[in-house]
Simulated scan of single mutants.
Amino acid sequence: MEKGALVGRRTFIAASVATTLAGCTSHGSDTTDAGTSSSSTSAESATSSSGTDKNGDTERRRTETTVSVGSVVKDDTLAMVVRRVTTEEELGEFRDAEEGKTFAVIRMAVKNRGSEFIDFEDFLDASVVDGENRTYDPSISSPDHPIRSGVLAPGEVVRGDMVFEVPKGASELSLRLDFDSFTSFRFEQVTVSLGKKADSVADLKQSLDDVLSSGEKASHGGVSVAVHGVRTTTQLNEITDATDGHEFVVPDIEITNDGDERLLVSTLLQMHVKTGAGLAYTADIGASSGLKQPLNESSDIESGESHRGELAYQVETGTKPLYWAFNFLEADEPYKGFWKLR
């Protein structure tokens, strides 16, 4: 079965806190699943601004707002909430905070509330500001679930963490998100007071449309994508085992170039496994290289040819529902397709 207009076309796509920090929660988990309801809390403070465009017409009024952790900021286009803030001395096995500093890990969720695909890149314009107006940029250290910018499908939730390395004694920390370029969002700037928490921590529910099943194909603009099946295992081969509490989910993927020009795809930028709550996983490249037939992304797909193979994603055991998502990075008409794996 084929469903069209789910995947865009492009010739080349690749790229290869309490007023002190001690007031932040030191541990915690975001246990949201697909059935969690969405609620919202009104902004605690807001200011509005308007202007005129080059023709003298009044532009859409945009607002700046300040909220607490757990409060939803939303309009008809987008909804967002900071779910929790934790502090960590290390991230993974190889990254410790510098002496006198700590990692502030901010778990966020964002939902596309509109009916169109949107290209949302404004997580890149985020900073943490302390009570002395010192600014901290996002850390290059990557958490287990980094929040990912990019194309959001209607009803899709993206969930994950942003990390900032800050002095242990820093006080009155706030997360500042600027949406200068995302003009369809009513809020030009959102500030979250990380040392304040709403009475009830709100959340966002994912509600995907047009989810495909194994064996179904999505085609658009000369590109066809299909998932032929999926398998689950804790051992890919004699030397590759999943870590404790995890398993490998391995979809069988085929990408066909029906156009006239060569096509290059990227597993990192275009292909993810997503949970019902919106957490995303990238392919485990090391594990995938040990597959008998891994998906080949090291060479172009010539006109009229296909690349078929498997990718290994390591996820928490028993996580469901799970989807495989293909994101076509089309600047004019962003598209994204979803296949239900289980």
Rank of each mutant, 00 (worst) to 15 (best):
residue 290 G to V: 09
residue 285 I to T: 10
residue 259 G to L: 06
residue 251 P to F: 07
residue 284 D to F: 00
residue 286 G to H: 13
residue 259 G to D: 14
residue 267 T to F: 02
residue 277 A to M: 10
residue 257 N to F: 01
residue 296 N to P: 04
residue 266 S to A: 03
residue 272 H to D: 13
residue 264 L to Y: 15
residue 299 S to I: 04
residue 312 A to C: 11
residue 275 T to P: 01
residue 320 K to Q: 12
residue 304 G to E: 02
residue 290 G to W: 10
residue 306 S to G: 01
residue 274 K to C: 07
residue 307 H to G: 05
residue 298 S to C: 02
residue 294 P to G: 09
residue 296 N to E: 09
residue 261 E to V: 06
residue 315 V to I: 12
residue 296 N to M: 07
residue 314 Q to M: 11
residue 266 S to K: 08
residue 305 E to D: 14
residue 318 G to M: 04
residue 275 T to H: 07
residue 292 K to D: 15
residue 286 G to M: 12
residue 306 S to V: 04
residue 286 G to F: 13
residue 284 D to K: 03
residue 278 G to I: 08
residue 318 G to P: 08
residue 300 D to S: 07
residue 253 I to G: 03
residue 304 G to H: 00
residue 250 V to L: 03
residue 298 S to Y: 06
residue 298 S to W: 07
residue 281 Y to R: 10
residue 302 E to T: 10
residue 256 T to K: 07
residue 287 A to H: 08
residue 271 M to A: 08
residue 254 E to D: 02
residue 261 E to C: 04
residue 257 N to Q: 01
residue 258 D to N: 11
residue 250 V to T: 07
residue 293 Q to V: 12
residue 282 T to C: 00
residue 314 Q to S: 13
residue 258 D to G: 08
residue 264 L to E: 15
residue 319 T to E: 12
residue 310 E to W: 03
residue 272 H to T: 11
residue 293 Q to S: 15
residue 267 T to P: 05
residue 305 E to N: 13
residue 265 V to M: 14
residue 272 H to S: 09
residue 293 Q to E: 15
residue 287 A to T: 10
residue 265 V to A: 12
residue 297 E to K: 06
residue 321 P to A: 13
residue 260 D to E: 14
residue 290 G to H: 14
residue 301 I to H: 00
residue 305 E to C: 10
residue 316 E to V: 10
residue 261 E to M: 09
residue 275 T to R: 09
residue 285 I to L: 08
residue 296 N to R: 08
residue 296 N to H: 04
residue 266 S to Y: 13
residue 321 P to D: 15
residue 275 T to W: 11
residue 250 V to R: 08
residue 259 G to Y: 06
residue 314 Q to H: 04
residue 279 L to Y: 06
residue 254 E to H: 00
residue 315 V to Q: 04
residue 289 S to D: 10
residue 252 D to R: 05
residue 252 D to P: 04
residue 273 V to C: 07
residue 274 K to E: 12
residue 303 S to I: 07
residue 317 T to F: 03
residue 279 L to I: 01
residue 305 E to F: 12
residue 279 L to T: 03
residue 295 L to M: 05
residue 250 V to P: 05
residue 257 N to M: 02
residue 279 L to P: 00
residue 285 I to D: 11
residue 290 G to R: 14
residue 294 P to E: 09
residue 292 K to F: 11
residue 320 K to I: 03
residue 279 L to M: 00
residue 264 L to M: 14
residue 309 G to S: 00
residue 251 P to H: 06
residue 312 A to G: 09
residue 294 P to H: 10
residue 271 M to C: 05
residue 256 T to P: 01
residue 289 S to G: 07
residue 316 E to M: 01
residue 289 S to V: 04
residue 267 T to I: 00
residue 321 P to F: 13
residue 297 E to S: 10
residue 280 A to R: 07
residue 324 W to Q: 04
residue 266 S to E: 08
residue 264 L to W: 14
residue 260 D to R: 10
residue 302 E to L: 13
residue 315 V to L: 01
residue 253 I to T: 03
residue 292 K to T: 14
residue 280 A to S: 09
residue 269 L to M: 11
residue 254 E to M: 06
residue 264 L to H: 15
residue 255 I to E: 02
residue 289 S to N: 11
residue 280 A to L: 05
residue 270 Q to N: 15
residue 318 G to V: 06
residue 308 R to T: 07
residue 287 A to V: 11
residue 252 D to C: 02
residue 281 Y to L: 01
residue 304 G to F: 03
residue 309 G to E: 01
residue 269 L to E: 14
residue 281 Y to W: 09
residue 275 T to I: 02
